[in-house]
Design a protein around this nucleic acid. Structure first.
Length: 334
DNA sequence: TCTCCACCGGAATGCTTGGATG
DNA sequence: CATCCAAGCATTCCGGTGGAGA
């Protein structure tokens, strides 16, 4: 049933990106000066998850590579490499300058100096999930490095800028912005059709079924493709010769559970307890939350630490805090 | 309107950790 | 092996803020 499993992976970048012509054209024309060796202002891609930001960025940069003989590129996911050190290390890695750098013996500023000394070919760095970067000042420093061209990806423009201090924000003001809207069901269904064409035997799934998947994914391409992957996998494990409704239903449930599990994996036990309490109650005031938490764990952390946890979970989009001081309540998200 | 209270979140401080180094 | 050191984590302290009630 599955002829090419790669096309269902999260990292897969298709050779042809559909439904984003305007964005691609705009992005490649913005990157155009690089082909002449000229630097560009940073480019910011904004939009909800699963709208093709990462995919399109990698695709366009890859296209650029085909045109420019001397070009270095690097993709950095700031969720995974969220500290200043790790991000810088990744960036240096892209130009092979990481020799003799160790966590202890090398202060982070040495990494920055080394990057400043870079004299080689134009360098394009994609910083994905840049809002997860802990030290936002790094953006300011990177911005000043010659030959370094930044492509920043984040969910929400206002939220990103709210977390930047004045100095960094004003440095990023002139950046080119490209916004991504959620996919419609039609677009999503046709994206799925392509994946089916590339990765599955013909006639194992109907267009109507693809629309069902698209509908369940609510505009998020990553979820849609994940559901398709799981449905195809279960169908082939059950030796079915086509994907049936029950495969899709199960896959939708599993995909949702998987997302929840993946985010929860990132939490410590204490954070999970807090998350559970909020899940159970739907919404809860700070005082009540702490009492419930302190009752459930053996050695509760302090209130201040709980606030740090909650802040982190809010940043991960697991919960939302409604209201500032006074009548604040924590809600579940998603 | 003033005061008290709960809570937020920044900063400083101390403890732990894990890899480098001699 | 013991030692060293920066990063990460939790805690303490504290100024600031909004809401409830005198």
């Amino acid at each position: 049933m599955i002829t090419d499993a790669r096309v269902f992976q999260d990292e897969f970048v298709p050779s042809d990106v559909v439904h984003r012509d305007a964005e691609i054209n705009y992005l490649s024309s913005t990157l155009r000066p690089i082909t002449d060796g000229d630097p560009i202002e940073p480019v910011c891609l904004f939009g909800p998850s699963g709208t093709g930001k990462t995919c399109l960025a990698r695709y366009t940069v890859e296209q650029l590579r085909e045109e420019v003989i001397d070009l270095n590129t690097q993709y950095v996911n700031c969720w995974e490499d969220h500290s200043r050190f790790k991000t810088l290390y990744r960036i240096l890695d892209g130009i092979g300058k990481t020799l003799n750098i160790h966590r202890q013996s090398t202060p982070t500023d040495v990494l920055l100096d080394r990057l400043r000394d870079y004299e080689g070919a134009p360098y394009v760095v994609i910083l994905d999930e840049v809002d997860q970067l802990e030290d936002k000042d790094l953006l300011y420093d990177l911005r000043r490095i010659r030959n370094l061209n930044l492509l920043l990806i984040a969910n929400d423009e206002t939220e990103l800028f709210a977390h930047l201090d004045e100095r960094v924000a004003s440095r990023l003001q002139p950046c080119t912005r490209i916004s991504f809207d959620t996919y419609g069901d039609d677009e999503l269904a046709s994206i799925l059709q392509d994946r089916v064409r590339w990765g599955l035997r013909p006639d194992v799934i109907t267009d109507a079924q693809l629309r069902d998947i698209a509908d369940a994914a609510a505009g998020d391409a990553r979820i849609a493709i994940g559901v398709l992957r799981v449905a195809a996998r279960t169908a082939s494990r059950n030796d079915a010769n086509a994907i049936h409704e029950e495969h899709i239903e199960a896959a939708v449930a599993e995909a949702k559970a998987e997302i929840k599990r993946k985010t929860e994996e990132k939490l410590t036990h204490h954070q999970q307890v807090l998350y559970d309490i909020i899940t159970e109650r739907g919404e809860v005031a700070p005082g009540t939350l702490y009492e419930a938490y302190a009752e459930r764990v053996d050695d509760p952390k302090t209130k201040r630490t709980m606030r740090n946890y909650l802040q982190k979970m809010e940043h991960y989009n697991l919960i939302t805090a409604v209201g500032n001081d006074g009548g604040r309540e924590y809600h579940l998200r998603g």
